[in-house]
């Protein structure tokens, strides 16, 4: 067998094996590798390279070594899923660097972190003052997780006690001028609806590069032709304005009429409508 065929066979074979192994070892490897997994990856790569290119070497020796480097990390991962103690050994535990706003110098020393390293990591999280930090922990993956003090956390609707409408994910319903049926069905809408909405905006589907519908069935589109401006969804703002106008009208009628009974009717209904507007405002404004 000529050498080049040998190399072709070995390369293709090891490529397939490598592909399968990395699939089985899981996605976790890439995103949050600890040192052990990192080294495993490198070693598996080197062994595969050896199998592919070293013609003097025995293929089966290579495969044997490869399976050891596959099976042990695989088993370790499996066991660490089952047992917490094992997981602590394999993946390590996080080290607390800042607790109650105070830096734990001993822990820094233990992880061989200098003050500069810590400051750099904090700056990475957009924190320039250690005093702003309530709690920080060095994860086993090497990333620093930081919890800023409450007053330094970004303002959320919960903090200011605002009611917000729940929002489901939007679905992409048009891509490259073509309708995607499945996302459309997920929103329980159909192509008829889509055509009507596009007609309302006075555009044809061929001109749509990307169209998304939110969970309230509002369509937003981006066109190929960027010179055409597309009106944004106006349904909800219009409805909100209508409701507010009606409320003001009712109040006006209540003031204008001299019939006591009618005044009463207008007044109660105006209050009722105000209550309804308060209820629905978060939904219509989003």
């Amino acid at each position: 067998m000529p050498e080049w065929i040998n190399i072709l066979l070995r390369s293709t074979g090891s490529l397939v094996i490598l592909f399968l192994f990395t699939k089985w070892l899981g996605k976790k490897q890439l995103s949050e590798m600890n040192v052990f997994e990192y080294i495993t990856g490198i070693v598996i790569g080197s062994i595969v390279a050896f199998i592919a290119a070293d013609l003097d070497g025995n293929v089966f020796h290579g495969l044997l070594a490869l399976s050891v480097w596959f099976i042990i990390p695989f088993a370790a991962e499996f066991l660490s899923q089952k047992s917490k103690t094992f997981r602590n050994i394999i993946e390590g535990k996080g080290t607390v660097f800042i607790q109650d706003g105070k830096i734990m110098e001993d822990n820094l020393k233990k992880e061989r972190y200098t003050t500069d390293d810590l400051l750099e990591k904090l700056r990475d999280k957009n924190i320039f003052r250690v005093a702003d930090v309530e709690f920080a922990v060095l994860e086993s993956s090497g990333a620093l997780s930081v919890l800023p003090k409450k007053e330094n956390q970004p303002l959320t609707a919960k903090i200011i006690g605002m009611t917000v409408a729940p929002e489901k994910e939007s679905q992409t319903v048009i891509m490259d001028g073509k309708v995607l049926m499945e996302p459309l069905a997920n929103l329980s809408l159909n192509t008829n609806w889509l055509e009507t909405e596009l007609d309302k905006m006075n555009i044809s589907i061929e001109n749509v590069f990307l169209g998304q519908a939110d969970s309230d069935g509002q369509l937003t589109v981006d066109l190929y032709d960027d010179k055409i401006s597309v009106p944004g969804p106006s349904e909800k703002p219009l409805l909100f304005a209508t409701l507010k106008k009606c409320q003001a009208d009712l109040e006006l009628f209540a003031l204008a009429t001299e019939n006591q009974q009618a005044k009463q009717v207008y007044q109660t209904n105006s209050n009722k409508l105000q209550h309804a507007i308060d209820l629905i405002a978060p939904y219509l404004k989003s």
Partner: peptide, 13 residues
């Protein structure tokens, strides 16, 4: 809007 809403809470409101 109530008919189109996917979220139960939204629809209820």
């Amino acid at each position: 809007l109530a008919n189109k809403a996917q979220d139960q809470e939204t629809r209820q409101t």
